[in-house]
Amino acid sequence: MPSRSEPARHAPSPPAASHSVGPLTPHLYMPDAVRPLRAKEHFLSGDTQVELHAHPWPQLTFSTRGVIRLSTADGTWIVPPSRALWVPADVPHSINLIEDAELRTVYLHRWLGPEWTRCEVLEISPLLRALLLALDTTPDGRPPADAQAAQRERWIAPLLVNELERATQIRIDVPLPQDKRLRMLCEAMLRNPADRATLAERAATIGASERTVARLFRNHMGMSWQQWRQQAVLAHALPLLARGMAVSQVAAASGYTTDSAFCAMFKQATGKSPTAFQPRRQRAAPRQ
């Protein structure tokens, strides 16, 4: 829904990821019947993009530190440390590091795990987190750090899958259009959510009129530009709040010139104030 805030127009777009890397050697962590779960970890800087790739097994992606953005042809998902993202087998995906992050990925054998056909954002329970972090992360070609890694993976697998199926699913995805012109417009917005350029100004960058772009959004996305932009802003703001960033800072990073306008939009969209999504200790701080 359209915001009542004053637009801070023509905010400069941040540069694209300055460091692009390949798919982080998934072939060295291939799950099989002997080792149905394979885990890997990488420490990556905030200017890194993991290039588009796919593999014939599903994965669970999360970070123990830092926020990541995973994108497919159908949408993009913002994943803070409190959540994990399920990616089905054979789905091409890329990853952008929003900030320095410890990226963890767990591959599952194709016959293992939920039969979800689309990406799903999941809350990580304490048990699920413990199970994920208990997996050995040594690649093939080197002896596992834990001599009993394969046996432990087979023991952990059924409980981990059960926790996945019980996990709360959270819809904070941002759909992306197939139309190339709309895709360019949407990607520009995702790269810089604080840019409050008007739809007419954005349409001009792809050589179209405001009316044409508005019609394309309705036809291709089933929603208006304002609705899509709000969804993108929420997906950007939620991880920042979960990390404990002050509401005023989140509002500014989301392109709002006043906290009140941001809070009004946020509450209307989610039914809760932004502070409800901050860590409990921080929410209690003002009363101390």
Results as ranks from 00 to 15, higher is better:
residue 166 R to V: 01
residue 245 M to D: 10
residue 204 A to I: 11
residue 224 S to Y: 12
residue 173 D to K: 09
residue 219 N to E: 15
residue 250 V to W: 01
residue 186 C to E: 08
residue 196 R to E: 08
residue 225 W to R: 10
residue 227 Q to W: 06
residue 153 E to S: 14
residue 157 A to R: 03
residue 251 A to W: 03
residue 154 R to M: 06
residue 179 D to H: 13
residue 178 Q to I: 10
residue 249 Q to H: 08
residue 199 L to M: 11
residue 252 A to V: 07
residue 143 P to F: 15
residue 228 W to D: 03
residue 198 T to H: 13
residue 154 R to P: 08
residue 180 K to Y: 03
residue 159 L to W: 05
residue 139 P to A: 12
residue 184 M to C: 09
residue 156 I to F: 05
residue 153 E to M: 05
residue 183 R to N: 07
residue 169 Q to G: 11
residue 150 A to Y: 09
residue 220 H to G: 00
residue 244 G to H: 11
residue 157 A to W: 00
residue 200 A to N: 10
residue 250 V to F: 06
residue 211 R to F: 12
residue 183 R to K: 15
residue 233 V to C: 01
residue 184 M to I: 15
residue 238 L to W: 06
residue 223 M to I: 12
residue 182 L to F: 05
residue 189 M to N: 04
residue 213 V to E: 02
residue 199 L to W: 03
residue 233 V to F: 01
residue 241 L to A: 04
residue 161 V to G: 02
residue 244 G to Y: 05
residue 243 R to C: 04
residue 228 W to M: 04
residue 225 W to I: 09
residue 165 E to S: 11
residue 160 L to E: 02
residue 230 Q to P: 00
residue 178 Q to E: 15
residue 233 V to S: 04
residue 152 R to A: 09
residue 206 I to F: 02
residue 251 A to P: 02
residue 179 D to N: 15
residue 255 G to H: 00
residue 257 T to R: 09
residue 212 T to A: 14
residue 143 P to T: 09
residue 222 G to T: 03
residue 161 V to L: 09
residue 194 A to R: 13
residue 197 A to M: 13
residue 179 D to C: 10
residue 226 Q to M: 09
residue 222 G to D: 05
residue 257 T to C: 07
residue 258 T to S: 14
residue 215 R to Q: 13
residue 228 W to L: 10
residue 144 P to G: 09
residue 228 W to R: 04
residue 208 A to L: 15
residue 226 Q to R: 12
residue 161 V to W: 05
residue 251 A to T: 02
residue 201 E to H: 06
residue 148 Q to W: 11
residue 245 M to E: 07
residue 160 L to F: 02
residue 174 V to Q: 04
residue 236 H to A: 00
residue 201 E to L: 11
residue 254 S to M: 02
residue 157 A to C: 14
residue 146 D to E: 14
residue 166 R to A: 13
residue 190 L to D: 04
residue 180 K to Q: 12
residue 168 T to H: 13
residue 164 L to K: 06
residue 165 E to K: 12
residue 231 Q to P: 07
residue 186 C to L: 08
residue 139 P to Q: 10
residue 184 M to S: 14
residue 189 M to Q: 08
residue 218 R to Y: 14
residue 190 L to S: 00
residue 246 A to Y: 02
residue 190 L to R: 08
residue 166 R to L: 12
residue 198 T to Q: 14
residue 214 A to H: 12
residue 152 R to I: 01
residue 248 S to H: 06
residue 148 Q to A: 14
residue 209 S to R: 13
residue 165 E to M: 13
residue 216 L to C: 08
residue 147 A to Y: 10
residue 170 I to P: 06
residue 207 G to V: 14
residue 151 Q to C: 09
residue 172 I to K: 11
residue 242 A to Q: 15
residue 178 Q to Y: 05
residue 195 D to W: 01
residue 250 V to A: 04
residue 154 R to F: 03
residue 199 L to P: 02
residue 245 M to W: 05
residue 245 M to S: 07
residue 204 A to N: 10
residue 160 L to H: 01
residue 180 K to T: 14
residue 257 T to S: 10
residue 251 A to I: 02
residue 216 L to I: 02
residue 229 R to A: 10
